[in-house]
Simulated scan of single mutants.
Amino acid sequence: MNQPKVSIYVPAYNCETTIAKCLDSLLAQTYPNIEIVVVNDGSTDKTREILANYVTSCRIIDQSNQGLSQTRSNAIEVCTGEYVATVDADDYVTPNWLTDCITVMGENSADVGMFGFVSVDQNDHELKYGLKREYRMEVLSSVETVKRLGKDKLKNMSWGFITKRDY
């Protein structure tokens, strides 16, 4: 089975309470060919100290505060994988997340994959009024994707997707 390299980038700013859980969930992936890029956007809390524990397993980039949009752009610029995925510093994923995504995308020759999510509190309890989105696997044309995004049938988040690096 072809296992293309996947770069996962994490923008990090003042996320001392969540970044370790996020990175631990990424490092626990069953998918074997990953690169994890963390861009610390000038955090003023203990985020940088926590990231020091991950320098052997993740690529850590420090920058002065540039804001989320520029941080995402800077992260994508240094990603080397055939695919790029984004996870926010307060997110965590299941161990098979990437294996499942890459498998389904490969089976369907997909260029972009979107995955579901559930909002939880610090104790992993689902938030009653939090966001929740479950997707069933289907292949959509570009036109249909845009239509569904416009009707809020697909959540348009800056996270929650994986795409070929070329895009």
Rank of each mutant, 00 (worst) to 15 (best):
M1Y: 12
N2V: 09
Q3P: 01
V6N: 00
Y9L: 11
V10S: 03
P11W: 07
I19V: 08
A20N: 10
K21H: 08
L23G: 03
A28M: 01
T30N: 15
Y31D: 05
Y31G: 02
I34P: 01
E35T: 05
V38S: 07
V39H: 06
D41P: 02
S43R: 09
T47P: 01
E49W: 01
A52N: 14
N53E: 14
V55P: 00
C58D: 10
I60R: 03
S64V: 09
N65I: 13
G67L: 10
L68C: 06
S69E: 12
Q70I: 13
Q70Y: 14
E77W: 11
C79N: 05
T80D: 14
E82H: 11
V84M: 03
V84I: 15
A85G: 13
A85K: 01
D91P: 01
T94R: 02
W97P: 00
D100L: 04
D100W: 03
D100T: 04
E107S: 05
A110H: 02
V112L: 12
V112K: 06
G113I: 00
F115H: 09
F117S: 02
N123K: 12
H125W: 14
E126K: 06
L127W: 08
K128Y: 14
K128T: 13
L131S: 12
E134M: 08
V139Q: 09
S142C: 03
S142H: 13
L149S: 06
G150Y: 15
G150M: 13
M157Y: 09
